[in-house]
């Protein structure tokens, strides 16, 4: 579970990125996080993962405060960043093994887990190659494997589908469902409304640093009586601005 209470983040003393935001993300559900560019999605995700510090408010993951017990919290998170171009001088296997060392994954478990994930995402053939030579999609898949190798309870994924081929996207979606079925949490940001529609149990819409809708997509469609997702989304944003 992720509990966000009255969180505010201000950049350079005057740009309010997150404005007194509160939200509780329950276990056992896939939550899609939607918003326009610059709405505050990545800032909130970065605060949830400990990259940025909230100016006000608290964020708790599985009951632990990220400010007070950062290492314990980070150990429980699987985070996929929006940019997969890191450690490109390492080979795929060196990178994953480094991540497994950092998250203290026992050797036998990591071997099993890497074998499974590499197979799911079709990475076996390139594990020994430097990631410099990987395509964007391959790098993204490697980030997914790295984020999941320690079997975290909470998945926080920033645009995880970008660059994934259809087979890998299907595999990741399946894994997301299996993960929440075990009572865990999946929170992911996306720009693609169709992905949110098909995959999420609930969606959270953010605009100007505030959550303007948090609930099921069906309820939203009923409320606005619109079936076209893009139109619906823009209507919600418009209403949010008037509130």
């Amino acid at each position: 579970m992720i509990e966000i209470k009255k969180v505010t983040k201000i950049y350079n003393g005057n740009v309010v990125a997150i404005d007194n935001l509160s939200m509780t993300i329950p276990n056992g559900k896939i939550i899609g996080f939607i918003g326009l560019n610059g709405a505050g999605k990545t800032t909130l995700i970065k605060m949830m993962t400990g990259i940025l510090k909230a100016d006000k408010g608290t964020i708790k993951i599985d009951g632990l405060d990220i400010e007070k017990e950062p290492l314990k919290v980070k150990q429980n998170i699987g985070y996929i960043t929006d940019s997969p171009d890191m450690f490109l001088r390492l080979t795929g296997i060196e990178f994953i093994n480094f991540i497994a060392d950092i998250y203290k994954v026992p050797l036998a478990t990591r071997k099993k887990r890497i074998k499974h994930l590499a197979n799911e995402f079709g990475l076996e053939e390139i594990l020994d190659k430097p990631m410099q030579g990987y395509s964007h999609g391959m790098r993204q898949k490697m980030m997914v494997v790295a984020a999941l190798v320690h079997e975290p309870s909470v998945w926080i994924l920033d645009e995880p589908m970008i660059g994934l081929d259809p087979k890998s996207a299907v595999a990741l979606k399946k894994m997301m469902h299996e993960h929440v079925e075990k009572g865990n949490t999946v929170f992911f940001s996306t720009h693609v409304l169709e992905v949110a529609e098909k995959l999420c149990d609930e969606i959270a819409i953010i605009d100007q640093g505030r959550i303007i809708y948090f609930g099921t997509l069906d309820d939203l469609i009923k409320k606005y009586k619109k079936k076209d997702l893009e139109e619906l989304f823009l209507e919600v944003i418009k209403d949010g601005k008037h509130d």
Partner: peptide, 30 residues
């Protein structure tokens, strides 16, 4: 391009050769 054209090693072999290190050693090695 940055593509490595060297022949690839089997993933089973790679996994078998994998070793566990302390966080500090692993970070240093990276």
């Amino acid at each position: 391009s940055s593509k490595d054209t060297s022949p690839h090693r089997q993933s089973t072999k790679l996994l078998n050769n994998m070793k566990e290190h302390s966080i500090f050693t692993s970070y240093l090695s990276k």
